[in-house]
Design a protein around this nucleic acid. Structure first.
Lengths: 218, 218
DNA sequence: TTTAATAGTGTAAAAAATACACACTATATT
DNA sequence: AATATAGTGTGTATTTTTTACACTATTAAA
């Protein structure tokens, strides 16, 4: 009737044309030395979401990030000392905002590191399963959620946008058909700005037109 | 760090061309006399799903029913005595199987009753919100999940099948187009049997072709 | 000036979704 | 026997969406 209560965060970002997840190396029994999702106990009078925010702040230095609940995991055998119920959340952050910030600021882990979703190390507890579920959920919601925009910089190229889709779908898409489709969606705003610092033709930048997006999905 | 831990069940069935949810009248503080989702504490060494099965058995007399986890609700203020974390599950049952069975078999409730999803009474706790979320989830998964078949009898008419869709989508569908679409899906098996006991032209019965369904979604 | 790397663009064909109306049949009623 | 009732079952034309596919443009660096 009483259970330990934790939250775990699957924190995604988009970098080098890949989706990556932030993992921490545990410095505590059990699974000491293993990689795991950032997570910790929820305090007695703390709202679950606040605990998630606290943990993602400790790990990314960011407040006010995009969060959604994934699922609860409560297997009696998850933890050797008895049931620890965890509620897993998905968080999405822009790599620009975190690239110089990630470091372990807690005693219970040695380091934190971004791993591409298709090259994950062995993971503690049932964290592999949690991640698997999170990928599937993101995949399904792709075309009617703000998720892609939470992963990309404010201003992005269509190629970057396509790469987010490709990373989640796990397949390559035809450039022309992709562009046609997102043009029809109608919630991208074409800017008069271009990529800089590339040694090839600079791509045009776009951003999300939040108004149009909301009109479409209310 | 420790929290009370319960599960709540949103048990759906299909009856009289409507989707209905099983509610119980509480016989305990708090919300005594209010209608609520069937739910109870998870025992110390009990798996969460087993608790759900236990509770749905107590309420419907059925074992081995279709279950999926919906979400965790853990608001500090859900319960006047402090946080009670609940994990909500959706269960789907065939009305044929339960129609003579529903009765309160526990001390903590007075009665149980099926309510159409669009005529619900006032509900205890945040149960209205839980139900709302469950409807939305079912709606999204409609055409690529087994949910409709778990709600219908083994052998059903196309009209019944369409009514399940209509109830969840909250709109009426064109009969010809609906039939064309599900014909294209290709996982319905046409039987040589017909409805009986109706005072009008008897409709042909169909059933799910599980093999084809699985081939399609593996 | 050439090379390497990526951006950007259109059209035709096929497939899927939509809109739409009437004849059929089993039973109950007179 | 005739008729009313209530729901079953079916086809076609139109529009929309999806797919397949290949070349030119731009920039920086060598």
């Amino acid at each position: 009737m009483l259970s330990h209560f934790t939250v775990d965060c699957v924190i995604y970002t988009f970098h080098e044309a890949q989706l990556k997840i932030l993992l921490t190396e545990r410095n505590e029994y059990p699974y000491k030395g293993w990689w795991a999702l950032p997570g910790f106990y929820v305090e007695k009078d703390e709202e679950m979401e606040d605990a998630v925010k606290r943990i993602s702040y400790e790990n990314t230095g960011l407040k006010d990030i995009y969060l959604e609940q994934l699922a609860a995991f409560a297997g009696v055998k998850r933890h050797p000392e008895g049931r620890i119920l965890t509620v897993a959340y998905v968080a999405l952050v822009r790599y620009d905002n975190v690239k110089n910030k990630v470091k372990p600021v807690t005693s219970y882990m040695k380091q934190a590191k971004w791993y591409p979703i298709n090259h994950l190390p062995d993971l503690a507890f049932d964290h592999r399963e949690i991640i698997q579920l999170s990928v599937e959920k993101l995949k399904k919601r792709l075309s009617y959620s703000l998720a892609p925009f939470e992963l990309l910089p404010e201003k992005f190229t269509l190629t970057q946008f396509q790469q987010v889709y490709e990373a989640l779908l796990g397949e390559t898409l035809d450039k022309r058909n992709f562009r046609k489709k997102i043009n029809n969606l109608g919630y991208l705003k074409e800017l008069d700005e271009f990529q800089t610092g590339v040694s090839y033709r600079a791509a045009r930048l776009y951003k999300l037109d939040r108004r149009k997006f909301q009109k479409l999905f209310e």
